[in-house]
Design a protein around this nucleic acid. Sequence first.
DNA 1: CTGGTTGCAAAACCTTTGCAAAGTC
DNA 2: GACTTTGCAAAGGTTTTGCAACCAG
Lengths: 165, 165
Amino acid sequence: MTAGHVVHPVISPAPVAPTDPESLIADVATVLRARGERMTRPRRAVLTVLAGRNDHLSAEEIVDGVSLHDPAVHRASVYRTLETLSRLGIVQHVHVGHGGTAYHLAADGVRHPHVQCRVCGRVRDLPPDLLDEVAAVVAGRYGYVLDVGHVALSGTCPDCAARPR
Amino acid sequence: MTAGHVVHPVISPAPVAPTDPESLIADVATVLRARGERMTRPRRAVLTVLAGRNDHLSAEEIVDGVSLHDPAVHRASVYRTLETLSRLGIVQHVHVGHGGTAYHLAADGVRHPHVQCRVCGRVRDLPPDLLDEVAAVVAGRYGYVLDVGHVALSGTCPDCAARPR
DNA sequence: CTGGTTGCAAAACCTTTGCAAAGTC
DNA sequence: GACTTTGCAAAGGTTTTGCAACCAG
């Protein structure tokens, strides 16, 4: 349904149209097939969940969402799917301080930083250029090439600061 | 031995003299006793390991170091000790992207940022003020109060960049 | 059909916890 | 002697893996 989705370059960091599950699935299917891989129920389910809540979800949240959507899909397949989609650059993961990893669609190719609230745990996006200067300093002075999107900064969000403890 | 160590304010973030295990242990013992807690073999062992390699160690590395130093000390006690010493502000932990938590002595009260190399996994300290400006922006624009020391930035260290793959 | 993928169940991690015994002050 | 802390062993929680059955292309 909804004809003509853009055909994306087959290999690279995979820009994929956001939010609409149908076309997202179709696009990803193309990428997969171009590599000899397949579009399957677990993969559809994971993509649907990720597209449905354009957010940063823990593996557990994705597992829950998936089994709502397609109860036949097994936990393990969700993990395997996340691994596959990461390899293809379709999802990205962010390590967050307390307890784990958050996954989100790689809306475009651009890595952006995140903050996680250490109280409520929610993850929020930050502008892609926020750490440019810091990255330059760290590169110049210490020789490290930063990947600003790979871990979330930690802090306290305004809501949790307002509602103290 | 080595007489007269500084007596530290009993409650607060606990600045503790670095590197020398003897006096570190003595100082921490004071802090502990002031709270009705005790200096024990596991705690001595953990402190010795942390002082010995002034570095950022994973729980596993600390467990290993400890059982070299005092094989009678059990894994679980190491975890409990790290928890206790964190509560007292004597050690701090940093969440690092891949696989866990790194512990280090809280040399002084100042929180500083870290980078972890995503290839070799090593953690290095960064200057305390590195993220001041970013923190100000994030606070001003989004209302988040950052804790810059709580998670390590992720990147590739010069060594690992030079030795590609 | 062919072979990439799955569900399942078990394993592999890592960290936490209940409890009686031991050790610290 | 009082009470904190330990060692042990078992439980918890999350992610990974081996394998036969399955299903997408």
